[in-house]
Design a protein around this nucleic acid. Structure first.
Length: 876
RNA sequence: GCGGGUGUGGCGGAACCGGUAGACGCGGCGGACUCAAAAUCCGUUUCUGGUGACAGAGUGUCGGUUCGAGUCCGACCACCCGCACCA
């Protein structure tokens, strides 16, 4: 080994082969060491990856490799979220089968991931489109059905007219399909649901136990679950109106503000409320109004601009606390899906109710008086008052605070009866809705149900699972290929044997990703979900993925884990003990004069430094950094980086500079910086070996210089371990650079010393030790380079299997400390004292300093603050 | 509208529990090596004044607490993210 350049292109595949041949990343469940499970969110096999996809895998890999060096039995698996719509679109465009397209993509992307040198246990690889996997999912579905977590109902759904499928509420973003971007329509369909609301309270409470999750994600989930406490209040229809025989006698509303009941001036029903439907049947004008409400769009812009509209039904209800009768409206702003689909309106203290009341000339009676407001003059104009205050104009509530009044109303109405039941009942409501999982698609997990005219929906018997997707399908017509398949759906009813048909809907692909982390726990070629294995490995110790899954995937997975627990399939309650959400990699965009997007490699710098196209030399417009995407062509393929700089450079760059949770910009300057670093480490190791070819014996004593280097090396190992534990990769990188600077100085000094005579034994030892510490400290980040250096340094075995370097506590402890000296809070000097020096000794030494003597000018100091080991402040 | 977050050199960013602001990297400038370039190495790089030692200012703005504030408190400004007629 000499000062020649490190040849990553030659070394990286060589070491990958060694790792592979020795099977060192293959994990066994019977390994006695403590377990550590690192998982990055598995990818959708869309075709090819770009370097932007690599960041979370590299971060997970650093953790996995580090934990291995720390003595853990690490599980670090990879798989494919392989069902989904793009495969069907590709099937239409290319006239192939979705499965063929998917497995081709998997093959490509597997090779690309391997190129990154990730320490994955590929023997546990799974694809969710494998019948062994989705068969187990069908079993789980049926067990959920038995356990009450699955049901079927006719419901209004979000229909994506482009993807021709149903979307869950969580999958509608700003009124558009999360994948297609199409405006979502409302349709009524019979759908299968997971009863996620049954666990709403648990899912909310469980968030408090997830201490290693970002607060931001926990908050988002908390808001999404949206718990509120309030009161159900039953309003009796006033006599005159209720004469019609078919009308119910009452209307039930949900309110979180029972304290404002005396300020109520109307009731409002949603357009989908049963009473509305009854009334509309005999009232064409109302029917027309309901139709108008339904047409109202669901996009943000439309909702925001939509005016409050109402229709007076002519009905009146009695005020339960003796106020005047209230008119009943149908209103477009009342949601059927939340609460009871009916509200009472208190215009003075709710903005929506106020807007409505002003439009229809309804009374606005304030009943909460803001602190220090004058009861005689306080009035509500265009802004409703929803703050603190004292009740007034409210009979027996007068003088109470809002919480007191809520309690008083609840207590009163609980005792009051209407018919045989109490008028008021305390109730908890959640914003969370049940998870509709039916999708009218082919490329997904079939729902294992058979519909029989006489027996209804019947589960597919256990011995007939899995229900496999038929291979002979066509995509030449819109709609679901399963539905129009000539034979697949026609089966005999498992109950009565009569003619029946299969459910042709498949499951939402979010179901597939709700338990895959449990599949990895089982050894290959074993049943996909084994309790013992799952309980051993789960929860995932460190889960890494994008913030875009803060609600959908993470909430569904939490629900699934709890539901699996309830049906006895696992013992754990939460799937992910630690969660980290990494930022994206962004890159500048390039456009030629015709406005076409250009790949980064199609752009170069002209002689004057301006960007031009490689092909024609035309000027290029540079756009701001954006998320790497195929459509904008601002992508960098991993192969190109591997060929020019090596994968370790890419890994190092991805870890450097930017905190991992923030977006990071990919630049050529950045990758070149990483290249210089890699070469520098290689050169340093080479120079050390030139001076100290073999590991020397430890000498009896060390001089100051050797001791300084040893201290730095041992400190590096200790601090870097902490940085990696806390996923502060950018700080860890900075520490390595700082150490390399110290190390480099030591090597230069040693070379000079060696020119004059033989190298002292303590220096030789310290240099060699420092090199071995450095190489292991960077091994998780730049594993190929580390192997090459480790081998050159005569390290035992592979760097990937080496132990993390120990830090000698004596070397970490400093015996002197340099204290900054402030005079009146400004730093004026510093002083080096023994670490054990008492405050009095320090004070004495400080008062003797020139700068202090000068500042005091003979006067005694007003005060001296000595913070041991930290700072001294002299107040003159 | 509601909720949350972030503001530090030319740039990415560091600074533990309130204790030397700007670590480390990028870029810039100057120099060494070279016929020259690349690569590499050395020095320098918050701003203002000064040849200099040094002095003053400085972490979005204004104010407060403290011996001491990037860090804590209050008000405001800007940007980013999430939710959004949830009664």
């Amino acid at each position: 080994m000499s000062t020649e350049r490190y040849n990553a292109r030659e070394a990286e595949p060589r070491w990958q082969k060694v790792w592979d041949e020795r099977g060192i990343f293959r994990t066994r469940n019977d390994d006695p060491r403590p377990k550590y499970y690192v998982l990055e969110m598995f990818p959708y096999p869309s075709g090819r990856i770009h370097i932007g996809h690599g960041r979370n895998y590299v971060m997970g890999d650093v953790v996995a490799r580090f934990k291995r060096m720390k003595g853990f039995n690490v599980l670090h698996p990879m798989g494919w979220d392989a069902f989904g719509l793009p495969a069907e679109n590709a099937a239409i465009e290319r006239n192939t089968h979705p499965g063929v397209w998917t497995y081709e993509n998997i093959a490509t992307m597997r090779e690309q991931l391997k190129l990154l040198g990730l320490s994955l246990d590929w023997s546990r690889e799974i694809a969710t489109c494998d019948p062994a996997y989705y068969g187990e999912q069908q079993r789980i579905f049926l067990e959920f059905l038995k356990g009450g977590f699955v049901y079927r109902k006719e419901s209004e759904v979000n229909w994506d007219p482009v993807d021709n499928t149903v979307l869950a509420n969580e999958q509608v973003i700003d009124g558009r399909g999360w994948r297609s971007g199409a405006l979502v329509e409302r349709r009524k369909l019979a759908q299968w649901f997971f009863r996620i609301t049954a666990l709403a309270q648990e899912l909310l409470d469980g968030l408090d136990t997830l201490e290693r999750w970002p607060d931001k994600v926990r908050l988002m989930q908390r808001n999404w679950i949206g718990r509120s406490e309030g009161l159900h209040v039953r309003f009796e229809l006033a006599a005159g109106a209720a004469a019609a025989a078919e009308l119910p006698r009452e209307v039930k509303v949900y309110t979180t503000r029972p304290d404002t009941l005396f300020g109520a001036s109307f009731l409002a029903l949603s357009a989908g409320h049963p009473l509305t439907e009854t009334l509309a049947a005999g009232n064409p004008a109302l029917a027309a109004f309901v139709e108008e409400c339904r047409r109202g769009g669901t996009s943000t812009a439309e909702i925001e601009t939509q005016e409050k509209m109402g229709f007076d039904t002519g009905l009146k209800v009695r005020h339960p606390l003796g106020g005047p009768d209230l008119p009943v409206y149908v209103a477009n702003f009342v949601l059927m899906e939340y609460g009871t689909g009916a509200i009472f309106g208190c215009p003075a203290h709710d903005q929506r109710d106020l807007d409505f009341a002003r439009k229809y000339g309804l009374p606005v009676t304030p009943v909460v008086l803001p602190p220090e407001a004058d009861p005689a003059s306080f009035a509500v104009g265009d802004i409703a008052y929803d703050g603190e205050g004292t009740l007034y104009h409210s009979g027996f509530l007068d003088g109470l605070s809002i919480p007191e009044a809520k309690e008083a109303v609840a207590a009163r109405l609980e005792k009051q009866t209407l018919g045989n039941a109490p008028v008021g009942e305390r109730a908890v409501n959640f914003r969370l809705r049940d998870w509709g999982i039916s999708r009218q698609r082919y490329w997904g997990c079939p729902i294992p149900i058979i519909h029989c005219e006489s027996c209804g929906p019947v589960p597919v018997p256990e011995d007939q699972l899995p229900v496999r997707l038929p291979d002979d399908v066509t995509f030449d017509a819109p709609g679901n290929p399963l539905d129009r398949h000539p034979t697949w759906k026609h089966v005999a009813c498992p109950h009565c044997g009569g003619p029946a048909r299969r459910e042709t809907d498949t499951m939402d692909t979010f179901v597939d990703s709700s338990w895959y982390f449990a599949r990895f726990a089982s050894e290959p070629n074993t049943p996909p979900l084994q309790k013992g294995a799952a309980d051993h490995w789960l929860p995932v110790d460190q889960y890494i993925g994008g913030i875009e899954h803060a609600i959908l995937h993470l909430l569904y997975s939490r629900f699934f884990t709890r539901a699996l627990n309830k049906i006895g399939r696992v013992s754990i309650e939460e799937p992910f003990a630690g969660l980290f959400t990494q930022g994206m990699i962004v890159h500048e965009t390039y456009k030629d004069p015709a406005g076409r997007w250009l790949f980064p490699e199609d752009v170069e710098k002209a002689a004057d430094g301006s960007p031009v196209t490689v092909a024609t030399g035309e000027p290029v417009t540079i756009g701001p950094p954006e998320k790497m995407s195929k459509s904008k062509r601002n992508v960098v393929p991993p192969e190109v980086v591997a060929d020019t700089y090596g994968v370790d450079c890419a890994r190092w760059f991805m870890l450097s500079d930017t905190p991992p949770e923030r977006d990071s910009e990919w630049t050529s300057a950045g990758i070149e910086g990483a290249w210089r670093f890699v070469q520098r480490i290689w050169r340093l190791v080479g120079e050390v070996l030139a001076l100290v070819p073999e590991a020397p014996e430890a000498p009896a004593a060390f001089g100051e210089a050797a001791l300084g280097l040893r201290r730095a090396a041992h400190k590096l190992a200790a601090q870097m371990a902490e940085d990696v534990e806390r996923l502060r990769f950018n700080v860890a990188v900075a520490r390595v650079h700082a150490f390399a600077n110290v190390f480099g100085d030591a090597v230069v000094a040693a070379r000079k010393s060696a020119e004059a005579g033989p190298l002292p034994a303590d220096t030789a030892f310290a240099l060699h030790e420092a090199a071995r510490y450095l190489v292991r400290a960077i091994a998780p980040s730049v594993p190929h380079l580390a192997e090459e250096c480790w081998a050159a340094l005569g390290g035992e075995g592979l760097a990937a299997e080496a132990a993390w370097p120990d830090s000698d506590p004596e070397l970490l402890a400093e015996d002197t400390v340099t204290l900054p000296i402030q005079i009146n809070g400004k730093r004026r000097a510093d002083i080096t004292v023994p670490k054990a020096a008492s405050p009095a000794e320090v004070e004495h030494a400080v008062l003797a300093l020139d700068a202090v003597v000068k500042a005091l000018d003979g006067r005694p100091p007003k005060r001296i603050i000595v913070v041991p080991q930290r700072i001294v402040n002299v107040v003159a």
